[in-house]
Amino acid sequence: MRADLEQVFRSAYPRVVAVAARVLGSRDEAEDVAQEVFLTFGRSAVPAGEAVGWLSVAAAHTALNHLRSSRRRAAREEAAGDDGAVGPDVADTVVTLEERRRVRAALARLPRKHAVALVLRHSGLSYAEVAAALDLSPGSVGTTVRRAETALRKELNRHASSD
């Protein structure tokens, strides 16, 4: 067990959960992912100075793996179907849930590098943090994220026309 695990956990846990929740749309599932990621980190030799970047990428990868699991996807869709919404906003809620499901499904179909870059950037990491986490030059992060956004839009449009 790492001597620095508790300190790294205390400082990085909120970010790890936020990255995973961005992918999964569920805080409970994101906390499960965070546990997996910190267990792996605890057995790793990742230098403490690289911990936040490593943990962010690991959270994105692990969350994407969970997202791609058909068993978990079915459970999420079933849970989203009976969210208890009542009143005049039910239609809006259903549309919003369906749109989130479509985006998450499209994200899961993207190449791993694009999906992770999008998740990290849209989880609040700076270009410098994304660059460090993905071992990219800071100047290429914007291009990578734009290409990933374009790929995501294409994927959404491709599947919208086939629905």
Score class of each variant (00 low, 15 high):
Leu64Thr: 11
Ala133Pro: 02
Ala115Trp: 05
Arg71Cys: 00
Ala133Gln: 03
Leu110Cys: 03
Ala45Tyr: 09
Arg158Tyr: 09
Val90Ser: 04
Pro47Met: 06
Ala131Cys: 06
Val33Met: 08
Arg43Tyr: 13
Val119Gln: 02
His61Trp: 03
Leu5Pro: 09
Ala75Asn: 07
Glu99Thr: 04
Val94Asp: 07
Lys113Tyr: 00
Ala131Arg: 01
Gly124Leu: 07
Asp83Cys: 07
Ala74Ile: 10
His114Tyr: 12
Pro14Asn: 09
Ala45Lys: 11
Ser162Arg: 15
Asp83Lys: 08
Ser70Ile: 05
Gly142Lys: 08
Asp82His: 15
Arg27Met: 02
Gln35Lys: 06
Thr143Gln: 12
Arg68Ala: 14
Val37Tyr: 09
Leu55Asn: 10
Arg73Glu: 11
Glu98Phe: 08
Ala106Asp: 01
Ala21Lys: 12
Val16His: 10
Arg146Met: 06
Arg158Thr: 08
Ala105Phe: 03
Gly139Leu: 04
Thr150Asp: 13
Asp82Leu: 13
Ala160Phe: 07
Ala85Tyr: 03
Ala48Ile: 04
Leu134Trp: 03
Ser70Thr: 10
Val46Trp: 01
Ser123Tyr: 01
Arg27Lys: 12
Ala12Asp: 14
Pro111Tyr: 01
Ala108Pro: 05
Glu129Met: 05
Lys113Arg: 15
Ala108Gly: 14
Glu99Val: 05
Arg101Ile: 01
Ala34Pro: 12
Leu118Glu: 01
Leu110Gly: 05
Arg71Tyr: 13
Asp82Gly: 12
Arg112Asn: 00
Ala75Asp: 11
Gly139Arg: 10
Leu67Asp: 04
Ser69Ala: 13
Pro88Asp: 15
Val119Met: 02
Thr62Tyr: 00
Gly87Phe: 07
Glu149Asn: 10
Ala75Gly: 00
Tyr13Cys: 10
Ala160Ser: 10
Ala132Lys: 10
Ser137Thr: 14
Arg10Asn: 13
Ser162Phe: 08
Gly81Thr: 09
Leu110Lys: 02
Ala3Ser: 15
Ala115Glu: 05
Phe9Tyr: 14
Pro138Lys: 11
Trp54Ser: 11
Leu125Val: 02
Ala108Phe: 05
Arg22Pro: 00
Arg109Ser: 09
Arg100Ala: 12
Asp163Val: 12
Ala34Val: 12
Ala18Arg: 12
Tyr127Phe: 07
Asp82Lys: 11
Met1Ser: 14
Ala34Glu: 10
Gly87Ser: 08
Glu50Cys: 00
Leu152Ile: 02
Asp28Glu: 15
Ala21Gly: 06
Arg102Phe: 00
Ser126Gln: 03
Ala91Thr: 13
Ala85Glu: 09
Ala21Trp: 01
Arg100Leu: 11
Ala128Arg: 15
Ser137Trp: 01
Ala20Tyr: 04
Ala3Leu: 15
Thr143Arg: 14
Ala51Leu: 08
Leu39Ser: 13
Asp83Ala: 09
Ala148Phe: 04
Trp54Asn: 06
Val46Leu: 02
Ala79Arg: 15
Glu149Phe: 00
Val130Gln: 07
Ser137His: 13
Ser126Cys: 01
Arg76Tyr: 06
Val23Pro: 01
Arg104His: 02
Val94Phe: 07
Asp92Ile: 01
Ala117Thr: 04
Val94Thr: 11
Arg147Leu: 09
Thr62Cys: 10
Leu136Glu: 11
Leu156His: 03
Thr143Gly: 03
Ala34Trp: 10
Pro111Asn: 12
Ser11Cys: 05
Leu97Pro: 04
Ala74Ser: 15
Ala3Arg: 15
Thr93Ser: 12
Gln35Asn: 13
Arg112Cys: 00
Ala21Leu: 01
Leu110Ala: 02
Leu55Asp: 09
Phe41Pro: 05
